[in-house]
């Protein structure tokens, strides 16, 4: 996976800024996507490109259990959110519905990655290559369980 970084230097980016409550009535994914990140960055849907990554601080996706949050991001084209930590429900929602990959990195890696950097993410090797800066970082490996759900393509395809 290769894509460009949209970086938010913030902790606790919550589900109400990812997709404000008033849009939860919307059933159509494409319409939902036009409001993604509206709470902190109204230009997000126009600047994001297919395959981009969001990079952010800790506790990304805290708050509600709305699956609309990963759906809105993924419909915009986001393939992975790379953060120092995630809120549990957002993490599971992202993986369960196979919407996007929640990738955990350490603080140092977080600081090294800048807005607009081009990254290549390799989950088999647990490796992130920064093609812009010519650096290589490691990501926190997925737990066995999560890796299996990801490999299966979501919770429903995950069979025992």
């Amino acid at each position: 996976m290769i894509g460009n970084v949209i970086k938010y230097e913030q902790d606790n980016i919550d589900t109400d800024v990812i997709i404000p409550g008033t849009y939860l009535k919307i059933h159509d994914y494409n319409e939902l996507a036009t409001h993604a990140m509206e709470g902190i960055d109204p230009d997000f849907p126009s600047k994001v490109k297919e395959g981009d990554f969001i990079v952010a601080g800790k506790n990304f996706g805290c708050g509600s259990s709305r699956e609309h949050a990963p759906i809105a991001l993924s419909t915009c084209g986001i393939k992975a959110v790379i953060a120092t930590s995630f809120a549990r429900i957002f993490y599971r929602n992202s993986v369960d519905g196979a919407f996007l990959l929640p990738i955990e990195i350490d603080d140092i890696t977080y600081q090294k990655i800048s807005n607009s950097d081009q990254l290549e993410v390799n989950i088999e090797k647990n490796e992130i290559k920064n093609l812009t800066k010519n650096e290589v970082y490691s990501m926190k490996p997925f737990s066995e369980i999560i890796a299996k759900i990801i490999a299966a393509g979501g919770l429903f395809k995950y069979k025992k």
Binding site: D96, G97, I145, L155, F156, Y158
Partner: peptide
């Protein structure tokens, strides 16, 4: 505990959930 929509579907269909 709260769950997302995929898990809602899984619970509706099976009355169970895979959990860590």
């Amino acid at each position: 505990f709260g769950i997302g929509t995929s898990e809602v579907e899984h619970t509706l269909a099976t009355q169970t959930l895979w959990l860590e």
